[in-house]
Nucleic acid binder design. Structure first.
Length: 596
DNA sequence: GCCGTTTTCGGCCCGACTGTTTTCAGTCG
């Protein structure tokens, strides 16, 4: 039972309490505790009740439940609740416009316990006669059930980012003088995204009306969630946005493709910085900011910060934080993970940026499963102005990826030597991504491993070992003197594969002990190590490396996503191997220089 | 259920939108 599992259980508990109609503040308390736990670094399993209560948001009750969960693997009260509430009812919460109150009503009056039954009941006109329900709501619920089948709850960052930018560009063609910004979790660079938030300012109310008309004309009704004086909400995807500027109406069949929710907001010019701050979130960050504002005698919302109904001037987000006596907090850090406390003490660091990156490691070539030759990669890297590159193909155990047998290794070494002579302006580091086998050993002999400038050790098989075994496996690999970098440490694939059952804190502590580098795998499907663990590694003094894990030339540009994650993990250039000059990197890889 | 520079009780962020109503409840972010 790791922190994520505990958080999940508490959130589930909150959901069931909601459906039961419990006190909303009690529900919020459970959600807040879950949220806190999710972002906490040390493993709750090792804490006793007194230590748990010290954590902000966890009191005696929730602490006892956590202990119960850790010792028995379940919570009696939760099990009792589960028996009380049918599974299908919990599913219904996914339907937009249906919250706990309405679902409770549907369950108690119509005795409906599944989405299927609910759909049928809508068709039979049984919903519309209930108190506070009506024809329109029934129709909407029916439509939402259909939408639900094509709607995805979370998207990988680049998918959402791409749709958001397409829409932003489209909006500029209609409103060339407007100020348009993407806010929300995309601006915070979250690894996965639930919806798209776009702010539109410096337009007239007439412009806004025109925009509303445009969307209602071009989109079928089921793609429109809402349209008001300040907000347009729609379902969209890449195809829908592309068709907005072309066809007369986007056809209904479009809904066969996955949809993401998009909220566009019309913001008064003078409120823009406040709205940008507000809609960037996170919710938890803002809640805390607002309680600070309140203590200072201010009222704060998306329109401004007010003292006795008099608005305080601010021209930028920087100004807003200044009003609250806080250092500016970059969007990536606004996750309520002690950033507000740090800002109060002027301790927000200067985060790494894309321009700090001088080279990269972890790149595959056509020797294994990469698409391009080493020379093509060199030329691309030169074009992109990198000072050095690190080539690392798969090792022999990765037979599915044409991992390198010993003779191919010598062949690659020769090719790299001659290419280095041909391209003296860029340094080529020669490495390998060696599989960490079941027992924690790397899959080449010492004689081979010592040939390379660097060795990335990664797990590519036997993912579901039990916690102790998996931890021992990784710890053994870290103890190997030839391993330089631990590759994608948790093995997760976002939205599709869970991370290994390991205590990342133990792994980080071992990495520190053996002086190993931790990879921030920049592939948007991985973004591994999880940014939530990075601050602890930073505190330990561990060096990180932002690695594209590229299998084709464009994959190298994924480094941008890795930088996002490094920033979310509070990293500064000094914490990251590939911000260093090639001379310094050479020394670090040869272990001639420490990096504390 | 949690929390305390007003507190061990009584608050707990705040506003928009929709659909149901005829002043408001539910949902959402």
């Amino acid at each position: 039972m790791n922190n994520k599992d505990i958080a999940k259980t508490l959130n589930f508990f909150a959901t069931l309490l909601e459906l039961k109609g419990e006190n909303p503040f009690k529900i919020r308390a459970y959600q807040k505790a879950a949220r806190t736990i999710e972002n906490i670094q040390n493993n709750l399993k090792n804490l006793n009740i007194e230590e748990l209560i010290k954590i902000n948001g966890i009191g005696k009750n929730i602490a006892e439940k956590i202990i119960e969960l850790n010792t028995s693997g379940k919570i009696k009260e939760l099990d009792a609740l589960k028996k009380e509430i049918p599974n299908g009812i919990i599913e219904m919460l996914k339907i937009p416009n249906l919250g706990p109150k309405r679902i409770k009503q549907i369950y108690e009056i119509l005795n409906i316990t599944s989405i299927g039954e609910l759909e049928y009941a809508c068709l039979e006109n049984r919903l519309k006669n209930m108190p506070n329900f009506g024809e329109k709501l029934q129709q909407k619920i029916l439509q939402n059930i259909k939408i639900l089948k094509t709607y995805k709850d979370r998207f990988l960052f680049p998918e959402a980012y791409n749709i958001a930018n397409l829409l932003k560009n489209f909006l500029y063609t209609k409103l060339p003088n407007a100020k348009i910004e993407i806010a929300g979790s995309i601006r915070r660079k979250k690894e996965t995204v639930h919806d798209i938030d776009i702010l539109i300012s410096y337009i007239t109310p007439e412009d806004w009306e025109k925009l509303k008309n445009l969307f209602s004309k071009k989109l079928t009704k089921s793609l429109i969630i809402g349209m008001g004086d300040t907000k347009i909400s729609i379902y969209a995807n890449e195809k829908i946005i592309n068709q907005l500027s072309k066809t007369k109406e986007v056809p209904y069949e479009i809904s066969k493709e996955t949809l993401i929710q998009v909220d566009m907001r019309f913001v008064p010019d003078e409120s823009f910085p406040f709205a940008l701050q507000h809609f960037t979130g996170s919710k938890e960050h803002n809640t805390k900011l607002r309680s600070i504002a309140k203590k200072m005698g201010y009222k704060s919302n998306e329109y401004g910060i007010f003292k006795n109904d008099k608005k305080i001037e601010a021209n930028s987000e920087e100004d807003i934080y200044k009003i609250l006596n806080l250092q500016y907090i970059p969007p990536e850090l606004r996750e309520d993970i002690k950033e507000i406390e740090a800002a109060a003490e002027n301790k927000i660091p200067v985060l790494v940026s894309r321009d700090d990156i001088k080279g990269f490691f972890h790149c595959h070539t056509n020797y294994s499963d990469g698409q391009n030759s080493i020379e093509e990669i060199i030329q691309y890297a030169l074009k992109k102005k990198y000072e050095y590159i690190g080539i690392s193909d798969h090792s022999k155990s990765a037979f599915y990826a044409h991992g390198l047998e010993e003779e191919r290794i010598y062949q690659q070494k020769e090719e790299i030597n001659s290419l280095q002579k041909k391209y003296p302006q860029i340094k080529i580091f020669w490495g390998i991504e060696s599989d960490i086998l079941k027992d924690g050993s790397l899959d080449y002999s010492e004689d081979i491993l010592k040939l390379f400038d660097f060795v990335i050790g990664s797990i590519h098989s036997n993912f579901s070992m039990k916690q102790e075994d998996m931890e021992n496996r990784i710890l053994a690999a870290l103890a190997n003197p030839y391993l330089t970098i631990l590759g994608h440490p948790s093995g997760r694939l976002l939205l599709s594969r869970e991370p290994f059952d390991i205590d990342m804190i133990k792994i980080l502590e071992a990495a520190k002990k053996y002086n190993k580098i931790i990879e921030i795998n920049a592939n948007p499907h991985r973004l591994d190590i999880d940014w939530r663990y990075i601050p602890y590694g930073k505190k330990l003094g561990i060096l990180f490396s932002i690695n594209p894990d590229a299998h084709r030339l464009e994959g190298i540009n994924d480094i941008e996503y890795g930088v996002n994650i490094a920033r979310k993990g509070w990293l500064e250039p000094i914490n990251i191997l590939n911000t260093y000059s090639k001379t310094k990197v050479e020394k670090i890889l040869k272990k001639e220089e420490q990096y504390e």
